[in-house]
Design a protein around this nucleic acid. Structure first.
Lengths: 199, 199
DNA sequence: ACCGTAACACTAACCGTTAGGGTTTTGAAC
DNA sequence: GTTCAAAACCCTAACGGTTAGTGTTACGGT
């Protein structure tokens, strides 16, 4: 039903704001740039900015819904009888690879440098873990208690978070997922071994 | 060297502020009470309040250092050759029991109701996990990689957080620690089984 | 052509937090 | 005791993120 021009203009405004924000943040530092600066640079009113982004921090984590969806889809969209943990490991490996790439490295350096952004990222991760837990608990092939589903979901998010900060991110993912695999196995006594290949 | 009156007066002021804050928060709700209200109720200046507490949220989590110390001491002060995970499980069980007691239940209900407080608690947990990881990595009896130590520390903190929210907190601690035990075992191939007794 | 409404703008404020600068209290050295 | 430095406290004013209130414009469906 919704045709097009309005939505295109809205999306353009949102993008214009996000671009302006990221540019200023990287140029001058997150804390040195005020909301009023961003709004001026994007040529919109402050209230307009806040109608597109819930907070200053949200300007940086513009596309965090992608992250959430990729994780839940790794669970829901996997092939029938494909084991859960390797699927999640694969997805986390891809996500870690993506966020340690050179092109986005300055952004993550900025995030790590700002307490406000770190805090925001942490609370985001809680949301992600809850979504992932729901997806795991909803899978009919798996019969796990709600508590076990939540625990595994947190562990997986922890793996992402820890790997990002590790000196060798890929190796850290492997190491932590070996632990997650072991934790997973004890939740379902009838489970098959799933092979956490790491030479 | 530091004798006494000054410190006693300072501690008294701090306590007066914390008491006033908690009273107002529980009466009227965290978000409905402003810093200026708390300062007025405690009969101190706003700047004085902030010289005792780093933020509004810190008024609620007044004694979070206890939590951190109890966890790290559970690692450092355990008997020689006493296995790590059961010691941690025991401590977490005590902490969960404490924070689900009726006397403090309203406080935690208030925390769960306020996004700002939840966010603050989450970032606190990260600090706690980092301290715990340091304690684990520093234990000469254990030979774990830094990554494994951090992972286990996070899992333990997750256990606390998840158990608090579970319908049966004690059972949740048991369930999650079974998983942690399994994760722990794979980090040190030469480890002994430690018996996660749960009938 | 018309109307409801989504998107945007402007102003003015609220609230947590901090800087700047001053006063009193305390502990200790003399 | 007197004196002195520092600690603890107070006050005012502001800064920066965020929101409410109140329009105005541009779009889309009828």
């Amino acid at each position: 039903m919704p045709t097009g021009r309005r939505e295109r203009k809205k999306a353009a405004t949102r993008q214009k704001i996000a671009d302006a924000a990221l540019r200023l943040f990287l140029e001058q530092g997150y804390d040195a740039v005020g909301i009023r600066d961003v709004a001026a640079e994007a040529d919109v009113a402050v209230t307009t900015l806040f109608s597109h982004f819930a907070s200053k921090e949200a300007l940086v984590f513009e596309q965090d819904e992608d992250f959430e969806q990729r994780l839940t889809r790794a669970v829901t969209d996997r092939a029938p009888h494909e084991p859960l943990i390797p699927a999640l490991r694969h997805e986390i490996q891809a996500l870690v690879r993506h966020c340690t790439a050179d092109s986005v490295a300055p952004i993550w350096r900025m995030i790590d440098a700002s307490p406000a952004l770190r805090k925001y990222e942490e609370s985001m991760r809680l949301r992600h873990a809850e979504s992932l837990a729901t997806a795991i608990a909803a899978d009919p092939d798996l019969s796990v208690t709600p508590t076990a589903a939540r625990a595994i979901a947190r562990f997986v998010i922890d793996a992402y978070s820890l790997a990002r900060e590790a000196t060798d991110p890929q190796a850290a993912v492997g190491e932590i997922f070996q632990m997650i695999e072991a934790a997973w196995v004890v939740t379902c006594p009838s489970a098959n071994s799933t092979g956490t290949a790491r030479p």
